[in-house]
């Protein structure tokens, strides 16, 4: 049996997307991205800049809090930075990465957090996409999906809240949003990226103990499977110790209950 949880594995996968000196925005109700930022800063990316919806820059929380915009995420921060100024930075091209959650993601990385069913008469009204319709059009995003199944990974989203590669290929350029786009999709089963020409989702690595068939069965579209599929590198001892120490209440597990 693995000595880590899938939440811990996913947090580490998200953290690995952060490079040293990256400026990363962590949004509201984002337990895994908080952990990813704290992991990256503590290990491989000490100079990354953590900006969050608690309106601060570079916090040093002693413990991961439940509300991801609350006072606990302001601890020891160097300054307040109102979110509208962070968006100004993004519009200047000076924000490097956002993490994005979604109810649905399709094969071109479009995300839906608005409605299931028709927009005017929805079957289910979802919370809304927060920053996504703005930021997904202008910068790199990494999408996290705690439950990889055919309802979440769909051929076509019911509504594009956050722009992926739209209809694939050069569709973003055609829509007037040439910059950025989704880079990776991290789920509880695997990691995926996007094939450079078609911009269709492609398998990169499968988490330890997960079978390729399980990934295929739980994906609602034809996933590109390259000849060589890696096994995702699990969290190491130091990373696990760090996560358990900074998050004793288990906030990182919230989306997996």
């Amino acid at each position: 049996m693995a000595d880590y949880t899938v939440a811990e594995l996913m947090a580490v996968c998200l953290a690995r997307e952060i490079k040293d000196r990256d400026r990363v925005l962590q949004g509201l109700y984002s337990p895994l991205p908080i952990m990813a930022c704290l992991l990256a800063k503590n290990f491989h990316a000490p100079n990354m800049v953590h900006i969050n919806t608690a309106d601060v820059i570079d916090p040093e929380p002693t413990e991961v809090p439940f509300s991801t915009a609350g006072p606990a995420l302001q601890e020891r921060a160097v300054a307040y930075l109102p979110l509208w100024q962070t968006f100004d930075l993004a519009q200047q091209g000076k924000l490097d990465l956002i993490f994005l959650g979604a109810a649905q993601v399709d094969k071109y990385g479009n995300t839906n957090l608005s409605v299931i069913g028709p927009y005017e008469k929805p079957k289910v009204r979802l919370p809304g996409g927060a920053a996504s319709a703005h930021l997904c059009a202008i910068m790199d995003a990494v999408i996290w999906i705690p439950r990889h199944n055919a309802r979440a990974l769909v051929e076509k989203v019911d509504f594009i809240t956050g722009q992926g590669y739209l209809t694939g290929g050069k569709a973003r350029e055609g829509a007037g949003i040439p910059k950025g786009g989704p880079r990776k999709v991290v789920t509880n089963l695997c990691i995926m990226d996007f094939e450079p020409e078609t911009k269709a989702m492609r398998l990169v690595s499968i988490h330890p103990g997960v079978a390729l068939e399980e990934v295929k069965e739980n994906t609602g579209f034809e996933l590109i499977v390259p000849d060589k599929v890696e096994t995702t590198e699990p969290p190491n001892k130091e990373e696990l110790e760090f996560m358990r120490q900074i998050d004793p209440k288990g906030v990182r597990e919230l989306e997996f209950h």
């Binding site: 608005s114 703005h134 059009a137 973003r172 949003i177």
Partner: peptide, 13 residues
């Protein structure tokens, strides 16, 4: 004016 938004259904509707 602002950047982004284009291509999203949020923008379309």
């Amino acid at each position: 004016p602002l950047r982004g938004m284009l291509g999203s259904d949020v923008f379309r509707v």
